[in-house]
Amino acid sequence: MYSFETPEYLFLLFLLPVAVFFRHFWKKRGGRIPFAVSLWNREYFQPGNSLAGVIAFLSHVSFWCSLGCIIIALAGPGIVRHRKVFLSRGLDMMIVLDLSPSMAAQDFAPDNRFESARQVIKDLVQRRENDPIGLVTFGLEAALRIPPTVDYDMVLQRLEDLRILEMGDGTAIGMGIAVACLHLQQSTAGEKVIVLITDGENNAGAILPEAAAELAAGLGIRVYAIGIGSEGEVPLEYTDPATGKTYRGQFVSGFDEELLVAVAERTGGKYFSSSSQGTLEAVIRTIDSMESIEKRVSIQTETEEKYRTWIAASLGCFLLWFFLSRLVLKEVW
């Protein structure tokens, strides 16, 4: 929204038409010298050059525009913007994502489980406001990919960089939860949440999921566990990031539902099962709505000053007027 710091100056614009009148239309104005336009009994002087008339008109317009721009700049124009400032801290959310090869199973249209999970996480990140979000991935091992932050662009960038199998061939669910707990430990957030997305059974890592759940419960962290994938034989295709070699095949899908339920319940969270892209989206939306906390917000008004634009416009018009008046028309002042 355009606004003016001292709009009183705009009243000067009312004087412009008056000044134009006295400068160009007032019959008693002194800027004219009467002189004969014809000799006795000869033809009248014909102002034949219409281009000169156009240039003269342009010259006058640029002169008055320059003056008008100065008056507008004097009024202190600016664009007012409203900014939402959070006065309270959001909750901390850590996404713990399985990168084992089975996440390449193609039972989640249009691509595979991993791509579906990545897409719903992106949607989740984009829906949150001022809630620090972090990312932990696991396979044979687990690692922090990004600590909890409100720099969502960076979270999305790190998500985009993820590749299946880059954490090794295995499913260290317990390690994934433990790493997430470690990095939520010092958080001052009132609410701390882990969203675990996996399609397999814990078969790697030094920390058992049950022990990791105990750790999370002790730190007051809720774990939402999402078991993804359909039952039975499913096609699978993935590229090993280390060798660049592509693998294809069939594998029998299944995950340890009991374990995930136990982990979620121990921490006061909830377990969800998802067998398709649609249900995964619904699950993530459910978690998103369950984990909404009340936020205190103030709206701040900021003004981006624009007077320099008007001064520059005034200077441009002024120089154009001078060029046309003095150098092209060669007016006598």
Binding site: I146, P147, P148, D151, M154, L184, Q185, S187
Partner: peptide
């Protein structure tokens, strides 16, 4: 290069 975003996670930093 931005390597660690703004965070309270001192261990990560």
């Amino acid at each position: 290069v931005k390597t660690i975003p703004l965070t309270e996670d001192i261990k990560a930093v």
